[in-house]
């Protein structure tokens, strides 16, 4: 068991070293996120280096709350890139209802449990017609979390920005700022 643990620990270091050190995103206007959005942020964030071409992840307190940009999922792609055959794949012919189901299903196959929808309604992302879904959920640890996702389809690709955090304190801590980033978003 110890040997395996050690291997796992080393593997984890390599994995972490390879893909997730944090850099600063200063409070600024016109910050470019991937090849997708231009946003303004009233506060500084930590941006994680992630190994996923169509994802950008910002946070204030580690994974206690995250702002995740989905910068264009193409036909046949999974939401978070990875080799997993079992993850849902995006279909460019999707309606908005299917696009939302694709996102939620992707989350539900990535450790999200007890999904409880609070609201689902039409909304705009970067001026494009889309949806906004709010929900509560937990993960295996049983800690309550809250999240919302704003998404839209453009040129046969899916774009979205999601904000989530621990329900106690951390979700509220940066919600306003996350909303402000999202409402400032423009397509590049």
């Amino acid at each position: 068991m110890t040997t395996l643990r050690r291997i796992a620990a080393i593997g984890l270091i390599l994995a972490l070293g390879a893909c997730t050190t944090y850099s600063m995103v200063e409070a600024t206007k016109g910050y470019e996120v991937g090849d997708a959005f231009k946003v303004d942020t009233p506060i500084a964030w930590n941006k994680a280096r992630v190994h996923s071409p169509n994802i950008e992840l910002w946070t204030l307190d580690g994974l206690l709350q995250t702002l995740v940009f989905v910068t264009g999922v193409s036909n046949g792609d999974t939401l978070f890139s990875g080799p997993d055959e079992k993850k849902p794949k995006f279909d460019e012919k999707s309606t908005i209802i299917e696009a939302k189901a694709f996102i939620i299903d992707s989350l539900l196959t990535s450790g999200v449990l007890e999904y409880r929808e609070i609201s689902f309604a039409p909304a705009k992302l970067a001026g494009q017609d889309g949806f906004r879904v709010e929900f509560k959920f937990t993960k295996e640890d049983g800690m309550e979390r809250r999240a919302f996702v704003v998404g839209a389809l453009k040129d046969k690709k899916l774009y979205a920005i999601m904000y989530s955090g621990a329900e106690i304190y951390f979700y509220d801590r940066a919600k306003q700022e996350a909303e402000s980033v999202i409402s400032s978003a423009h397509f590049l």
Binding site: L4, I7, L12, L16, H51, I55, G82, S110, M162, S164
Partner: peptide
């Protein structure tokens, strides 16, 4: 939401023992 995937891969080996 990204890193957990990486972590879970590493943790998975531990879990299989449990």
């Amino acid at each position: 939401m990204i890193r957990p995937v990486v972590i879970s891969a590493a943790v998975a080996s531990l879990l299989s023992l449990a």
